[in-house]
Simulated assay, not measured.
Amino acid sequence: MTTSTSCVYVTHLVAPKLGSTDAECEDAVAVFPGCSHDHMLREPLTAGVCDGATESALAKDWARLLSRTAAEHAMELPDVLTGGTAFEEFASSVVARWEPWLVWYTQARHAEGRPLKWYEHTKIADGAYATLLTVRVDPDDSHADATEPTWHWRAAALGDSCLFHLHENRLVRAFPVAAVEEFGTSPDLFGSRNHDAALLARRTRFTEGRCEAGDRLLLMTDALAAWLLSAGDQDDAVKQLLEFTGPDDLDGFKDWLNGLRGCRRLRNDDVAFVRIDFEGR
């Protein structure tokens, strides 16, 4: 029997809401290993996607720290994505990183001649908040003698950033939100000062699955996910999303988003999008 080799391609795009700059965007993505979108990955891959809560101070900074730390931990400790003690240790670890970052931020603001105002201190004391979606993909060595390669993936989600599994470019699974009616105005959030790691673990949902060559995983924050789930012609919506294959498409991606916003099919919110393509060779 001839053994197939496998590879994965990954790209991600982040775009601010209409009327905001890239620097103001409160959605964040981290992918490990860091490599170009046309690089053939044959090793484990992790991604963290976060949607910072606008009503909290420093949401974009927390979203960036949280997404990066989640992807790092998923790469180092796969059991993080099965819940329990491993996830609690991750939760404690990322919250512990926030205070040192705040010290650095406060000092940087002072050095720039822009010390924090009293009202900023008050809001910062309340903490920053974001949703979290973390995914890890591994080549499935348990089927090493198969003619077609497969991959095993695990995911953890707190809040309404979503993962979609496509087979033959058709949506076959959505996690953790399966229908547009399930989106609400108050999703669960990961707080930068929430030291109750067990509570965070209980509120987080975990799942896993397998992909074949030709399958895709799409990760995205809530506004784009709601658009996809509400589309009258879901196959066409998927086709539109798959037009964007790399970072060179970012300007076109922003124009496309703004077109959807203009006809009120997409809520005007920041967007983070990760595309993972599985191929056999």
Rank of each mutant, 00 (worst) to 15 (best):
S230Q: 14
R173I: 00
L116I: 01
D222W: 02
G280A: 14
T2H: 13
N194F: 08
L266S: 00
S161T: 10
L228S: 01
D160C: 14
C7G: 10
D215I: 04
A63K: 05
A272Y: 06
Q107G: 09
T85D: 15
A28E: 13
G262H: 12
R261W: 04
W101A: 02
A15T: 12
E99H: 12
G52P: 04
E168M: 03
K60M: 08
H39L: 06
A128M: 06
A96Y: 08
Q234D: 07
T3S: 15
H152F: 12
A74C: 14
T207L: 04
G259H: 09
A272H: 07
D126H: 13
R154I: 03
C162W: 01
A59M: 05
L224K: 02
F278A: 02
F32L: 13
Q234T: 14
R281P: 12
A223Y: 01
A30W: 00
W118R: 15
E243W: 09
E24G: 14
T85V: 13
S6C: 14
D236P: 00
F164N: 01
R114K: 13
D61N: 11
V10D: 01
H73Q: 13
A128S: 15
S142N: 11
L77R: 15
S4C: 15
G232D: 14
V172W: 02
E72C: 08
H73Y: 10
A28F: 10
H39M: 09
T131M: 07
L13V: 06
T150P: 04
L45D: 00
K239T: 15
Y105T: 01
L158R: 06
G83E: 06
P100K: 08
E168G: 03
D269T: 04
D145R: 15
R68Q: 12
